[in-house]
Design a protein around this nucleic acid. Structure first.
Lengths: 244, 244
DNA sequence: CCTGTATAGATGTATAGACAAGTTGGAGGC
DNA sequence: GCCTCCAACTTGTCTATACATCTATACAGG
């Protein structure tokens, strides 16, 4: 199966063999791949070479690994829609899945240089920080850190408790209609804390989305940084839609 | 420098040491990192362990490697702006850099199942395919494959020669005002052909953006797939702006 | 001056062995 | 029956060695 004379690295050949098998649907999502040792015997390769091959599958989001258990075929990516007005809950419900959220922490900090610029407030103004983990079908999906001006939303921390639709709280209690204005997309790798929260290894890339929302008056309402498990989603940006 | 008792993998410790050094600006973009062997001697680690550490830096876009030469500190990412109407050229000029493009290939194919759906045409209709590589400051930046209906733009292939602003050609010769309607963002890894075109190794992730543009009449004009070197850019989506 | 060769040094690939750490299931004791 | 503990199996980490491949430089020969 592995050609050792054609100049193509063995681990790349094995990668492609495995990807083809997965794409053909030979394995169902969640099913276990052959173990590293089985593969190394079957293809007459060293275990490290097999690991190199599987590493690429992991990076591409085809498989995930659990130490002590094995390597498993990943589920299809979720098509996560982002537009001016989409919220997490509606986006996930739209694709027929089950959204959930948990407020990890809420605290206050001084704005500092970067945040004061983003939120268009003073350097020493207080900022409310909300950290929320969102789940899809009970699996951790993304980790959002939101920054809002304390002066504008003084009671936000107590209001948010129990409700995870920030947009709804802002609308109901402050009459603010927050609309996404811009988002920046980057690929990164998780920090230690994110590894625990999102239950991934450091080797799995994450999609980093930084968004700015503004109110009716054009003032910045929220700056948020969301870390998506990149193996779980592809993100669809709708330039037109008001969403729903 | 490396603590072997605290339960943190050596390669992760080294990763963080190197990242900190780079972030502090000790190395300027383009400067060479210590070689693998130097690092392995300095930190008393095996060369493979050093390679594991550097692999993460490469994945994060901090460094790039050239076989036979060494490992080099990468430049800052380009903030590439995408909105309804931004074009590559204006986006790059906006950030003060030098855009360029080259038409790799143009050819025709039958639509087939997926493309006919995307372009809203018949299964057997002909499609014009344009492959364009775009450069920033002479460095390959992205690879775009555009799909357009041959019936709508019969002479496109000869018109496009020499001009790389597809939008301008459509406007000038067909009176069509193409506006981006939606874009899908995914992280992937390059195919063999992309590795050559974008001059990257298979290990460097790429950002895959699939976009749909429509004309004034609301009909789909273009479906394009763009592969960005993810180490070279972060992408900013503007939900409001008409761009320019 | 140009060219081809030799060499040193860099990363890339493959192999081998060892141990760590997490998971699972079964044997054995209670 | 239930619990504990151990053995087997899995992935994770580290080391060691060897050779391939590519780059750059130096140098000899034309």
């Amino acid at each position: 199966m592995i050609n050792r004379e054609n100049g193509v690295a063995c681990y790349q050949q094995l990668s492609e063999i495995l990807i083809k098998q997965i794409e053909k649907g030979i394995f169902k999502p969640g099913s276990q791949l052959a173990t590293e040792i089985e593969l190394s015997k079957r293809y007459r390769l060293n275990r490290h070479t097999v690991r190199q091959a599987i590493e690429r599958l992991e990076n591409e989001g085809f498989v995930y690994k659990i130490k002590g258990k094995g390597t498993f075929v990943a589920s299809d990516k979720i098509n996560y829609k982002v537009s001016k007005r989409t919220s997490f809950t509606t986006s996930i419900l739209d694709v027929g899945l089950n959204p959930d959220a948990r407020l990890l922490e809420s605290y206050e900090i001084a704005a500092g240089r970067e945040l004061s610029k983003r939120l268009n407030i003073q350097f020493s103004d207080r900022i409310i920080v909300l950290e929320i983990v969102r789940f899809v079908n009970k699996m951790p999906f993304c980790h959002t850190t939101s920054f809002l001006s304390k002066a504008k939303f003084p009671e936000l921390r107590s209001l948010i408790n129990g409700s995870f639709s920030l947009v709804a709280v802002l609308k109901k209690h402050y009459g603010v209609d927050a609309v996404r204005k811009s988002s920046t997309f980057e690929v990164s790798t998780p920090e230690t804390s994110d590894m625990d929260i999102l239950m991934i290894s450091q080797k799995v890339p994450i999609l980093l989305v930084k968004s700015i929302s503004k109110g009716q008056d054009g003032e910045v309402v929220e700056y948020c940084v969301t870390k998506f498990r990149r193996d779980m989603c592809s993100i669809i940006v709708d330039f037109n839609g008001e969403g729903r």
